[in-house]
Design a protein around this nucleic acid. Sequence first.
DNA 1: CCGTGGTGATTGAACGCCCATTCAGTCTCA
DNA 2: TGAGACTGAATGGGCGTTCAATCACCACGG
Lengths: 205, 205
Amino acid sequence: MGGALRNDAREARRSAILRAAVEVFAERGYEDARMREVAERAGVADGTTYLYFQGKEALLVAILEENAKAFLKRARRDAGRQKDPGAKLRKVIERHLVSLESDRALAHVFQIELRHSRRFLRQVARGQVAEYLRLLQRIIAEGTASGLFRDDIPADVAARAVFGAVDELITSWVLADRPRSLAGQAAPLLRLIFGGLERRAGGSR
Amino acid sequence: MGGALRNDAREARRSAILRAAVEVFAERGYEDARMREVAERAGVADGTTYLYFQGKEALLVAILEENAKAFLKRARRDAGRQKDPGAKLRKVIERHLVSLESDRALAHVFQIELRHSRRFLRQVARGQVAEYLRLLQRIIAEGTASGLFRDDIPADVAARAVFGAVDELITSWVLADRPRSLAGQAAPLLRLIFGGLERRAGGSR
DNA sequence: CCGTGGTGATTGAACGCCCATTCAGTCTCA
DNA sequence: TGAGACTGAATGGGCGTTCAATCACCACGG
């Protein structure tokens, strides 16, 4: 039999290659990244990467899918644990910021490298974004239905605006030479978002 | 003397190449765009493009710089014509949406193709974005100083959040198969942004 | 306990594709 | 008629990818 040990070793090697790819892509950018360097940094021969991934672009897809899926899972779990739509939204946004702040190289790949223009890749990347947008939209619609949020902003527009605001803060953070803590910007960002979404208190009754 | 006619002809040819580049980049994506196709569509020989631009990437830079500068100029003029910071912000955002909606191919290049590499993004594209962000930040700070906007959201965070929100709506519009009018989404977007920025009426005194 | 054969994983030098760019020749016009 | 603009076939090189050769490991028989 192949044996669990063998599978573990294989898995470890796969992870090493993937991690090396994240770092090299982040440092040099996808186009200037050399497969040779990914292999070298993972401690394997050039050809070995092709035993684990179909090619350079497949690495990018794997980085996206594995991390995006894990993030979405955590975000949904976070949201599920709250019953107030406001708390749900807050948790998801905080999770978004914290997740990417914890791994700058990965954040770089997500914010910059995954947006290069190969058609099918964009479809893959946008597929994950679309799923995240749907989560936001559902939470916001729930907030509107419960009377917490104002009803003159369609949930899909709101979801995209919120995503865009968060996304841009992260992109600046990734590109900054001396980045200020992302989590530290969460409070004013949330004030802005909630101020925009919530019904005006004065208008009640 | 070279003659004005000659310069006009030269300028027309330059524009034709630039326009062809916008279209080919938008259709195929920067990487899959072929210089041959740009030349063909501009009605010139392959080599001619190199008499007008240094190379493929220089086309991208030229597209960015010429259009971004024109946009910034119009945005500043719009803002200068208003005296209320709220009206300024509104005008600039509307200008942003309308400008890109009027040229979908150009919008595609701006939203997708110009973000393809770290080097390019940091050095060239982000320079223009930074200038736009500074404009937004100045307007917002003015609004805060005048008591129109709340003072617990730093202007730089607000500027980036606003830019991100607008930017994401445009990107979805560019990527959508059947896009809904961008200008039509301006009203709810502005409600969201102003709701987030303005002081709560209830807190006055 | 060794030796041995076989299987699958790994290696890395060499390949070849692809296309941006060049430049020697041709054309145009004053 | 010549200076500059234009042409487009030819070129070159960079790098992702391949694959014949080698290695590591294990099962098994003696």
